[in-house]
């Protein structure tokens, strides 16, 4: 599905976020991406979903070199990759139904899209997707009235409607409380298993990653420092990995995201 050969990403301001990544993710694989804050997890996922382009090396998505993706072809590739972000996935002022139906946009023409805002099209797909995540009764509610966890499930419903070959999730549970977190991860994993989708999830919570993913990737300061099964590294080694995080960032993180209170 993805092949990275010496991929690097240097931002316009000169900051090197990723360097020399070699890695290959096969269709149907389930991979967890771990690493301290600032390690480059989000950047890697934005490369994989063709939002950013590598500045070094070669990234192939489903056999296509990302450097040569433009216009229509780029849209087609993006259509096959569904992404769930940590937050701000959804348009807050839109009703839930439209946020979910937005999953069709890669297939819909501009006219269909506009029409659907006035009179929702393929409503049954939205209903089915929301049923799957247990939010069928929220169809007509405004999205910003939902709680964080509910919004995350709406984002998953949108991916269900999109029906991509790959699901990427960037710390999908970082802003949720621990009880909800496991539920969301399980939802994603079940989905990937049942419908044979490739799943790449960045996580902060090592136990969750070890419990649900056969393959773990660890990033540290933009480099890949581990790629293998959960058994390959001891709990202590994981702890050491995260201890590398620069302190001020860790403190800031603890302030905004209660999830760091987890035992790592």
């Amino acid at each position: 599905m993805f092949v990275l050969e010496g991929v690097g990403k240097t931002f316009a301001n000169g900051f090197v976020a990723l360097r020399d990544l070699h890695l290959r993710i096969a269709p149907g694989e389930r991979v967890a991406l771990l690493g301290p804050s600032g390690a480059g997890k989000t950047t890697l996922l934005r490369l994989l979903n063709a939002t950013l382009r590598p500045t070094a090396g070669r990234l192939t998505i489903a056999g296509l070199d990302s450097r040569h993706l433009h216009g229509k072809r780029l849209r087609q590739v993006r259509r096959t990759i569904g992404t769930i972000y940590q937050q701000y996935n959804l348009v807050p002022r839109l009703r839930v139904v439209h946020n979910v139906l937005a999953g069709h946009l890669g297939r819909w023409s501009g006219w269909r899209a506009a029409l659907s805002l006035l009179h929702p099209l393929q409503l049954d797909t939205a209903v089915a997707a929301l049923q799957h995540v247990g939010l069928a009764d929220r169809l007509w509610q405004r999205t910003d009235q939902l709680s964080g966890g509910e919004q995350q499930r709406v984002a998953i419903a949108r991916v269900l409607v999109q029906d991509p070959a790959v699901i990427l999730a960037d710390e999908p549970v970082a802003s949720l409380d621990p009880g909800l977190a496991e539920g969301i991860v399980r939802l994603l994993v079940d989905l990937a298993v049942q419908r044979q989708k490739t799943l790449v999830v960045s996580l902060h919570h090592v136990p969750l990653a070890r419990a649900y993913f056969p393959r773990l990737l660890a990033l540290q300061q933009g480099r890949l420092v581990y790629d293998g099964p959960p058994q390959g590294l001891s709990a202590a080694a994981w702890q050491a990995l995260f201890a590398e995080a620069p302190l001020p960032a860790a403190a800031e993180r603890a302030h905004v995201r209660p999830v760091t209170a987890f035992p790592l």
Binding site: Y85, Y88, N89, V91, G103, G106, A113
Partner: peptide, 30 residues
């Protein structure tokens, strides 16, 4: 407008017009 929801729409394959209709316009309308 907040670009993050717009980036999410673009990432799932929305065209420029669709990002405008679903992402920018609802945020800006009021």
């Amino acid at each position: 407008v907040d670009r993050r929801p717009c980036e999410a729409l673009q990432a799932l394959g929305a065209s420029r017009l669709q990002v405008f209709l679903y992402g920018m316009l609802p945020q800006a309308l009021p």
